[in-house]
């Protein structure tokens, strides 16, 4: 197992390099430049060159990339051109808001999808299954921004149960207040995940219920709930581990749309603003950070999968 993890970690390095090169090239291909924000009619070419030098934008693309990479290898993700602050500081500042929102939405998804998936699988092709399946289809197909707007209209404007957006009420600094602000965006974000997880768990439940061990347990007169929750559920959740691993990237990278609609001061809004202002260091920092988290998330999922399933573990050992 250790060997496998070390191998995977080493494999990350070229992958990160390739992603960074592609991201850098795409940024360079986009029209406009970060120093456009400083441009004024009548500025001399010398002054503009000095500005470019200050922000490391004066060399060729290869030189600029090397300049960036050199600093990253030293632990310096660069300084935001528009905000004149270290990129790591900006990301760290917004990260708690995003992680809390995305974490809450993931928790809601897991808590809701397990019973829904099990019930649907247990009642395959019966009315209960059809109702749950219809709901999951809606959850998968309805765009989150639409649900977000509808939920704001109903729960914030009409019923006044929740705020329309933001993370804190004015002059209030408490966990309860933050959680209250989080309810709508977290629920909206969780809808899609809940629907996907439910479908996975449902189909796994159906296939597990047909397995020999279930037939044996039933024939031995084991309680139906014990079969379902102690035996079937465990096996159903294995593929969910992979899905959660992949969703970890979303957990820390935020959601551009939902953060905007709910005025949530997360990392997604930071990136959107950076893209508009062609703030290269922030965009690169964000891209690399999300890439790293995605890869690490997948690695963690694979490892957990191996821990949970001896067949995989044995396969790894053979490799």
């Amino acid at each position: 197992m250790k060997k496998y993890i070390v191998k995977r970690v080493i494999g990350l390095i070229p992958l990160l390099l390739v992603v960074s090169i592609f991201s850098f090239l795409i940024l360079q291909a986009a029209p406009g430049s970060p120093i456009d924000n400083y441009m004024q009619p009548g500025m001399t070419e010398d002054r503009i060159e000095a500005l470019k030098e200050e922000y490391g934008l004066n060399g060729s693309i290869a030189e600029q990339y090397w300049y960036w990479l050199k600093h990253v290898l030293q632990g310096d993700m660069g300084t935001s051109i528009s905000k004149n602050r270290p990129v790591t500081e900006l990301i760290a500042e917004r990260l708690p808001a995003t992680v809390s929102l995305m974490g809450a939405s993931l928790l809601i998804s897991i808590v809701c999808s397990i019973p829904l998936g099990l019930i649907a699988g247990l009642h395959k092709d019966r009315p209960m299954d059809k109702v749950i399946s219809t709901i999951t289809y809606f959850g998968i197909s309805i765009p989150p921004f639409w649900i977000a707007m509808i939920s704001v209209i109903i729960f914030a404007i009409k019923l006044r149960c929740f705020p329309t957006g933001g993370m804190h009420s004015l002059d209030v600094e408490s966990t309860a207040d933050t959680l209250w602000h989080m309810v709508l965006p977290a629920c909206v974000l969780s809808l899609n995940h809940t629907a996907v997880y439910t479908k996975y768990i449902r189909s796994n439940t159906i296939s597990q219920l047909e397995e020999d061990y279930v037939v044996t347990a039933v024939s031995k007169g084991t309680n139906k709930n014990i079969i379902l929750f102690c035996h079937v559920l465990k096996n159903c959740l294995l593929p969910i581990i992979t899905l959660i691993g992949m969703n970890i990237a979303g957990l820390v990278c935020g959601s551009f749309i939902i953060e905007n609609i709910f005025s949530w001061p997360g990392i997604g809004r930071l990136c959107m603003e950076a893209v508009g202002g062609r703030d290269y260091p922030v965009i690169m920092g964000y891209t690399m950070f999300s890439c790293l988290i995605l890869i690490v998330g997948n690695l963690v999922a694979d490892v957990l999968y191996a821990v949970a399933d001896p067949r995989i573990r044995e396969g790894m050992g053979r490799k």
Partner: peptide
Amino acid sequence: VIAFLLAMTMAVSMAACGSSSTSEET
């Protein structure tokens, strides 16, 4: 059982950690 618990703990702790400490961290 341990594997299952680990997987669930990972998900719940990440989420719970995010939500419960939000205010302080922020």
